[in-house]
Design a protein around this nucleic acid. Structure first.
Lengths: 219, 219
DNA sequence: ACAAGTCGGTTGTTTTTACAACGGAAAGAG
DNA sequence: CTCTTTCCGTTGTAAAAACAACCGACTTGT
């Protein structure tokens, strides 16, 4: 497990904690290392989680099968990312997705109760980890709500307006750049790329905005 | 503030904490009570939050204006609900929405740093509050991810399949009930009610499922 | 320099959705 | 019981999106 401490140091969870401290916290946090061969399941649909996990090597797919067995990929996790933190609440019930190793991978499990209960002894940095975790989930939450707001528009135009308005506010300027190319933006908003491209151009022709590549300006 | 302790006792945040303990924790958590007349703003777009808040009386709207000033209602908060917890991370930036009192309301603010840092002295129940908060946002996170998955389908049918498959899995049965009527389900999935109703009937005619009111059965 | 690949815009067709309007069944109120 | 309201299915039409296919501009690698 020691060899992965440098990876852990760069995670949100351990932000601001030194390598030595991480090393001494591992047992306190109930850390366990598991490795998976390509194709093996890290989690299966129906399991109950009690651990927050960090992928320290490899990469994973989150996938789901619907009632009739049609599979879809919901996301992927790459090294340094945390996952499972949304399923650890006692009331959250069974996991609905599978998590599968796309290549040989290594995962560290942290018992959630050990993580969020600061030990009275030692562990000077435990409170910082709790804080990091809390803010990480909180921030993830915010992003999800925002994305949900963008996606709740009924038309492509509504979604674009919602997203671009937000980005303009966030960057506090009518001129701003977005971190997506067209395909990525379309995926983010769950719309068809060409239809979206079309809609953007219509909006430009109507004088609502201008753009060039990922640089936008609104009027 | 004391008069609202019974309300606080019923919140997620203080689940399992007695009224006496809540009373003695209030100062430790940096609690402040603010009241608002109908129409007043609790938060304004552009503010930075450092508090987790609980609405203890009245009800609030979350609303947003797009770049050209078109207002939309994103949600509402009723007594006992917690809000603002998604915006307290240092990196989360300015609030993008307004929160407005729909009737005379009372809100209790808790400083987030005081909440998530268990005080070394007293406060036997502080650790429980941290745990409650952590699980509350974790669970909210899970629900958001799930809803996002349902909404990322391109067609009404895809959204329905995603939602109903999930519900079937969750209730572990091909027969299950949903907690929505048609209009609520349509709103949840961000589609038109009549179009959705239509699609459900098509799926029924194709032999994929049966339903009656909010009772479903899948084949 | 050339080939291959990526990216973004455009167009036309088909499918799907939103929207509006209506009607019947059921539930609830007076 | 009757009136009103709510819920849900149905239909038709107009609007919008998905989809597929194509093109030109740029990049990248060889």
């Amino acid at each position: 497990m020691k060899k992965y401490i440098p990876v852990l140091k760069r995670t949100q969870m351990f932000a601001g904690v030194g390598e030595n401290e991480i090393g001494s916290m591992l047992s306190c946090l109930g850390a366990r290392l598991c490795t998976y061969k390509k194709g093996e399941y890290v989690f299966r649909q129906g399991e109950h989680l009690n651990d927050i996990t960090v992928l320290v090597e490899g990469n994973l797919h989150i996938q789901r099968d619907d009632y009739w067995g049609n599979r879809s990929i919901l996301g992927h996790i790459s090294a340094g990312e945390m996952f499972g933190e949304a399923y650890v609440a006692p009331e959250s019930g069974a996991l609905m997705n599978d998590v599968v190793a796309m290549e040989d991978s290594a995962v560290i499990f942290f018992n959630v109760n050990r993580v969020i209960t600061t030990c009275p002894s030692a562990c000077r940095f435990h409170a910082l980890v709790v804080r990091n975790m809390f803010f990480a989930i909180s921030e993830k939450n915010r992003k999800l709500v925002q994305k949900l707001n963008h996606m709740s528009g009924r038309t492509t135009r509504e979604k674009l307006i919602s997203y671009l308005s937000e980005e303009s506010k966030r960057q506090n300027s009518a001129k701003f750049e977005i971190p997506f190319n067209r395909q990525q933006l379309a995926d983010f908003l769950s719309v068809d790329r060409s239809a979206m491209s079309n809609e953007l151009c219509k909006m430009r022709d109507e004088g609502l905005l201008e753009f060039e590549k990922n640089r936008f300006r609104m009027f």
